[in-house]
Amino acid sequence: MSKSFSNGVWSVKTNKGTIMDASSMAAAEERLQIPVPEMIFGQNEITVTHQSGWKLTFNALDALDLVDKTGNKSGHLQVAYSEEWRKSRENNSHGHDVSKIHRPFDWTYSTDYKGTETPPKLVENANTKIPFEKLKQQKPIVLFDEVPLYEDELGDNGMVTFSEKIRVMEDDMLILVRLYLRVDDVVFRIRDTRVYIDFQTGHVIRSYIEKEDSFKNVRKRVPIGSTDHTQLLRDPNWIDSVLPTTKSMTYDCKL
């Protein structure tokens, strides 16, 4: 399934298909050199093209290529009961050598991918920002799509999803690419890349925000008297509203 929009200067295309089959996943592992998430939407992407040839695209494999492949940079995060699990195993391995992790990597698939840009034009600019007031005026949307890129259930220890949304209006457009991570009883993490394009001025603004907090701290923010606290803890929008920002960057360019 694909959708497209063009106004002569800018064109937008979205593409959606099924998850990768076993042979495509094997090829992806070969390229990325890490075990890949169980759901990769390999054909899915959003691409924005300017008539000058500038192109910005978001796809799963480029995003996964930026995942920490050794686990060293991401601090070897472990599931909540890992310590307990290991201790009980130390004297109970039945002759199997299972003392260490064979191939550590960032199994949360926390990418800091901000899109694939050719040729690179966007430069960091702390003085620019996305005009949210303008975006709050609900002008008619000519193209909307929601495109998942990858997901993993973390062996039922939480979830990670990496997906994008786009809305194109007559005068401007917005893309939101979100990494959402929950490791049960450990951590919540959100990484948002937004791309705003003003079609009148050719101004392209990209923002990147990291938000993170411990599971324990987030649980404290669940309102007292909530009948089902598990529901709020599974609602990414609520989580987004209570997580503190830990990093923020903006970029822009004019086309």
Binding site: V79, V98, P104
Partner: peptide
């Protein structure tokens, strides 16, 4: 339980890259 044979029977996965048992990079599970 979180660990032990009952946990392994319902949790563990086959691994084509290693012939023996190995620990999941998540720090728990075989």
């Amino acid at each position: 339980p979180h660990e032990g044979p009952m946990a392994d029977l319902v949790w563990s996965d086959p691994d084509e890259t290693r012939a023996q048992f190995s620990i999941s990079p998540r720090g728990a599970g075989y």
